[in-house]
Design a protein around this nucleic acid. Structure first.
Length: 299
DNA sequence: AAACATCCCAACCGCCTAATT
DNA sequence: GAATTAGGCGGTTGGGATGTT
């Protein structure tokens, strides 16, 4: 047979999390590290599904995440990544290491979609009204599909170039660590941040030994290792950057996931760029830009 | 000040893939 | 290899917050 069931649906609590539940979850992750979510409700007594625990941690309690206050640069990055990747929010969020996929998705749905999609749709409608001979086809055939794909790629190239040229002309470097955009909160929950509370009461993140494959997270511009195993508490001072085991967070693409090897050859170069505070390009983006010259020639 | 409309986002739901037995 | 589940992801929604009349 397969694995045992994750959690029985009976008696599972739903709805908003209480601060008490948050503390229980944070305490547990502090001690055991993130992962093995199935064990969380059983070991903590939380009347929550393992999925719910994981979601709460990744989207809200995890240290280093920033909420709200998206900068213009982040706007542009999300828009052109959405054009490149579609609604693959986890992939898009991976380019914004202090943002969660849920946050990016929500931001797109509530702000950017209206801002960028509606004008596009209006333009499309206008274009289709002028070409009355072209019937609107919801399911293009293979040839049309290829055409549409090419159009999508062209659009993505344009969006990427626009975003980069706007970035270059603005001369704006990625927001430095500890200097979030106006209105941005340094990380989740701000004043009531559970992590803050944990730090305040004498220990939260574990200072995992270097080179043990431990994960790390970015808290207020500082990368803090998160233990994969039992944790040893750190003081608030050490978490604030005085500890030698801590690395400064660039505020750009994070190198905080060393266990994940590069997807493509060349991403190490991108990681090096990230270390210099520059927004690196993936190979896909580089390809789009390199090939983009042809796009211009076509028109 | 009250009623109503709109916006925003935390959390749930369902599907898919990888892992496990 | 089949059966089954955990974990991850994207779509959707309920309800509180905020703005407007």
């Amino acid at each position: 047979m397969g694995r045992p069931p994750c959690c029985d649906k009976e008696g599972v609590k739903k709805g908003p999390w209480t601060p008490e539940e948050d503390l229980v979850l944070v305490s547990y992750v502090q001690e055991h590290g993130p992962g093995n979510w199935r064990a969380v409700p059983a070991n903590t007594g939380l009347m929550r599904c393992s999925k719910s625990c994981r979601l709460r941690w990744t989207n809200y309690l995890r240290p280093g995440i920033r909420r709200g206050g998206f900068s213009d640069q982040e706007d542009r990055l999300i828009v052109h990544l959405q054009a490149l990747l579609g609604n693959r929010w986890a992939a898009i969020a991976s380019y914004l290491p202090d943002r969660t996929d849920n946050d990016v998705k929500n931001y797109w749905n509530t702000h950017l979609r209206k801002k960028h999609l509606l004008p596009l749709q209006r333009e499309e409608r206008r274009a289709s009204s002028t070409t009355a001979t072209a019937p609107a086809s919801p399911r293009p055939n293979k040839g049309q599909w290829e055409l549409q794909l090419q159009t999508d790629i062209d659009l993505a190239r344009r969006a990427l170039r626009d975003a980069l040229s706007a970035h270059a002309s603005a001369g704006s470097a990625p927001p430095p660590a500890g200097d979030p955009p106006a209105g941005a909160q340094p990380y989740a929950l701000t004043a009531g941040n559970v992590v803050d509370r944990m730090l305040g009461v004498g220990g939260w993140e574990a200072a995992a030994p270097a080179g043990t494959g431990s994960k790390s997270c970015c808290v207020g511009g500082t990368i803090i290792p998160v233990a994969a195993g039992p944790a040893t508490p750190v003081t608030a001072e050490s978490a604030s950057g005085s500890s030698s085991g801590l690395t400064e967070c660039t505020g750009s693409i994070s190198s905080a996931a060393p266990e994940a090897g590069p997807l493509f050859v060349g991403e190490e170069k991108a990681a090096a760029l990230a270390g210099r505070g520059e927004v690196p390009l993936s190979l896909i983006e580089s390809w789009l830009l390199e090939d983009g010259g042809g796009d211009d020639r076509e028109q």
